[in-house]
């Protein structure tokens, strides 16, 4: 499943590969309990109390703090235009956008795009490998876990945090706000999914894979459908054939 050799096509995983499932399900359960006690109530409170402008500002700040990494990874993926765009966004939003709390760059027509090292690896054809549920962080896979490690080391803010108290405060604050923002941004969908699903773990695993596929192909037209047709164990053509018998 882990395609070690680099191909020219970005990797798109078409099925779940989960050899660590028993362990993953345990971590999933623990994460759920921790979430229920800490992050979930915080996100619910944030959802119901914080005014819209605050939420918009926090979302902008969280995106902005990630721009150096977006730029770095776009460059590694051989996309200097996107790297320049992310860098430009960072400069504009950090200055006239007041520390990133206002996304003025989007108003100037430079849209946000997230790029991380997991996507960079995928860009060079490396598949996700085994699914991993990380403690606290949740759904991931071997490739993306490695990506998180590289991004952590490459992040200028983490270097700064080792040398300056201000940078450390900014870094810790950004981690907290990022967690709060992403939990809030997904709260309604995850509540719905948890309520409706029969196997919440499996549904999340599938959605994580599809979401990563989408980010890897940068939201472009979905070759996923074509890929799904060719290599999935059971695809739409099979189903049509089965139904016509």
């Amino acid at each position: 499943m882990l395609t070690a050799c680099a191909s020219t096509e970005p990797a798109q995983d078409t099925s779940d590969y989960d050899p660590l499932e028993p362990v993953n399900r345990v971590v999933h359960g623990v994460n759920g309990a921790v979430d229920f006690m800490v992050l979930y109530p915080a996100a619910m409170w944030y959802r119901d109390i914080a005014p819209e402008p605050v939420k918009t500002s926090v979302a902008s700040f969280v995106r902005n703090i990630n721009e150096p990494l977006n730029s770095f990874n776009a460059l590694l993926q051989g996309d200097p235009d996107q790297a320049a765009a992310s860098f430009q966004r960072f400069i504009m939003n950090s200055t006239i956008g007041l520390l990133g709390f206002n996304d003025v760059a989007s108003d100037f027509g430079i849209p946000y795009r997230r790029e991380d090292f997991g996507q960079t690896l995928a860009h060079y054809g490396i598949g996700g490998g085994p699914y991993i549920v990380l403690p606290l962080l949740g759904p991931s896979n071997l490739r993306d876990t490695a990506g998180i490690g590289v991004d952590y080391v490459a992040n200028p803010l983490t270097w700064g945090a080792q040398n300056s108290d201000t940078a450390e405060a900014l870094y810790l604050g950004s981690v907290g706000l990022t967690a709060l923002h992403y939990r809030y941004a997904t709260i309604n969908q995850l509540n719905e999914l948890q309520k409706s699903s029969i196997d919440y773990y499996a549904a999340l695993r599938s959605l994580y894979r599809q979401q990563r596929n989408k980010m890897i192909r940068n939201g472009g037209p979905s070759p996923e459908f074509a890929v799904e047709d060719e290599s999935a164990s059971f695809d739409f053509d099979d189903a049509v054939e089965a139904a016509s018998k």
Binding site: I198, D199, A203, Q210, N213, K214, E228, A239
Partner: peptide, 22 residues
Amino acid sequence: IIDVSIEGLSMGITQRDEFTSV
């Protein structure tokens, strides 16, 4: 209709992955 995708996430594939897991 044989499938619906919402923001790039296929409902059919998600449901298949969940059901086959069960």
